[in-house]
Design a protein around this nucleic acid. Structure first.
Length: 266
DNA sequence: TTCCATGTTCCGCA
DNA sequence: TTGCGGAACATGGA
């Protein structure tokens, strides 16, 4: 599930449950999830306390003093805080046992996520060449224009490339283009200034909205494309037909009526 | 049984 | 150099 809004909620969940708690033990239930040797993870956390938590794109960083726990959630990662072992989630891969008897499990059915340790989130971000976080207040339209001007190819590919913009995934890329009335296969160099601005504005609005209604436990509104991810469904915005295709290797939905491709010369 | 899944990485090709 | 297509990874649900 996790794209930027979901990881933002995990971040808040971590802040609400794990900050200020001392780590008594780290149990690795499936070492395939680790991006670091088990003893390095344990040494970094045991006997320490989580004092800060940050997010960049889809990545979560939690400070334990001198080093940071890094979590990436892949396709099915999740967090679960609980007291009673009977409440442990089914696919718990790493469990952090706190000194006060509570536990935080990193749960990930499909094992595409990563649990590891980094000395500094900023170094991690640089090393992994992650682009700016779209909700960073320091990320402005002029920065986005700068990025866009150096690119070609399909606009959806741009939105999904983590080294360009960190945090957008398949769903929110589709949602952004849907609201912007732009076909996912439009090429970046063919976008007008107004369209680039619309993508920038809608991308941030949608991510913020998603955080808001998800934090209230709600679902996406019916006007969202994500509620209509089915070939042949009716577009709630214009009544057009929802179509399915593949862009950047991912299943892509769009409205055939209000997200159109420019005519191509033969 | 087969296909699909909200992510990332790596390789080959144009 | 840039970008894309495809495959791989691991697992469960429709």
């Amino acid at each position: 599930m996790p794209e930027l809004p979901e990881v933002e909620l995990y971040c808040r969940y971590f802040a609400g449950h794990a900050l200020g708690r001392g780590v008594a033990a780290v149990r690795v239930l499936d070492a395939r999830i680790l991006g670091v040797r088990e003893h390095v993870l344990r040494r970094a956390l045991i006997g320490r306390e989580f004092v800060d938590v940050r997010r960049h794109g889809k990545h979560l960083f939690a400070s334990a003093g001198t080093s940071w726990l890094h979590l990436h959630f892949g396709m099915s990662g999740d967090l679960a805080f609980y007291r009673d072992d009977a409440e442990a989630p089914r696919f718990a891969r790493v469990v952090f046992d706190f000194e006060d008897g509570n536990h935080l499990a990193y749960d990930d059915m499909r094992l595409f996520g990563v649990v590891d340790v980094t000395p500094d989130p900023d170094v991690f971000i640089a090393e992994h060449r992650l682009g700016p976080d779209p909700l960073d207040p320091a990320f402005h339209l002029r920065d986005f224009r700068q990025i866009v001007s150096k690119r070609r190819g399909a606009v959806k590919s741009l939105l999904m490339s983590q080294e360009i913009i960190a945090g957008m995934g398949n769903l929110y890329a589709d949602e952004t283009l849907y609201r912007s009335s732009i076909h996912p296969r439009r090429t970046v160099d063919g976008l007008s200034d107004a369209e680039v601005k619309m993508i920038f504005t809608n991308m941030r609005a949608i991510l913020k909205e998603a955080i808001t209604f998800k934090s209230r436990g709600g679902d996406y509104p019916g006007r969202y494309l994500v509620q209509h991810r089915e070939e042949g469904d009716r577009c709630p915005q214009c009544g057009g037909t929802i179509q399915r295709t593949v862009v950047f290797g991912r299943t892509t939905y769009f409205c055939a009526k209000h997200q159109t491709l420019p005519r191509r010369k033969k």
